[in-house]
Amino acid sequence: MSSDVPVLELRGLEKYFNTSSGLLDTVKNRITRKSPTFVQAVDGVNMQLWENQVQGVIGESGCGKTTLLRTLIGLYKPTNGQLLFHGDPVSEFTKEEWKEFRRHVQIVFQDPFNSLDPKFSVRRTVAEPLEIHGIAYDIGQIKEMLESVGLTPAEKYLGRFPNQLSGGEKQRVAIARGLITKPDVILADEPASMLDVSTQAEILNLLNKLTDEFGVSMVYISHDLSTVSYICDKINVMYLGRVVEEAPTKQLLTEPKHPYTQALIQSIPIPDPHYERERAAVGGEPGDPINMPAGCRFKNRCPERMDVCDQTPMDVALSDDTNRTVACHLYYDHSTEKTEQAQ
């Protein structure tokens, strides 16, 4: 596999959900000639995931991170745009090619309370992907995997069912299940959100080892900015279905550019009861992906809002740094550039 094309690439991805749920709504809409209401969950995202790269995705709850990930693994059909795997569009995959894809690309779902089958023991849960793909295995492998995510001794857990595990233990079973087939690409949706620091560090070290030693690539969704820096090379900040800032991790944390990113960093709690943290200045309602504002989607909450923000900001590369882009009117000269972004 050549490495001059990204492992996974998204071009202009859009994913909308129709919320007129029932038949009744549909009929009503037809009679009243109202167009159905759409949730614009992901709206024009471009992303390239290269071999051995770890990209972080952070952003508001409900901004479309999970939808993005589910589309990346082919669980949702994009409304518009393209998904390429090693340069080949997945929309043209045959059944065999899908199976191959599924073997190489594994997902760790956001909520282990929902994603683990309650009728499956830990042992069966972790072994299932191997069985689906017809990969031979022995119990030693399963135990080793469980212990590497800190479920030690593995015997203690093998026969348990999900309801007999704590939240963080479920989460680690979900990670073990995702890693057992040795995938090349891992899509992890807040995989360590319930874990204490030390256990989290153990998992992050394991994931780091996979990417460093085995060339694994990963998309890592997290709300925890104080730990993403330990794993991600690069971070994408999403707001209401769009990526609003993209930068190498360290730079994003030390010099956030987009007002939303700045607010995020100011909102991280500090482990010191003597420290008086200023709360971020963004107030108001979080974004509503149904009634999207025109122009910059953050404008109603933005402390820097200007008149020009009623127009959609372009993704601009920062002049001093080609590695990062930001979609905000503060960062480009409007006399020389067009303000409407080509979609």
Partner: peptide, 18 residues
């Protein structure tokens, strides 16, 4: 409240805890 804000972004967490 058992992990009431784990699934939330930090801004939302801050607002809810406030």
């Amino acid at each position: 409240a058992d992990e009431p804000t784990t699934a939330l972004d930090v801004i939302m967490q801050d607002q809810i805890l406030d």
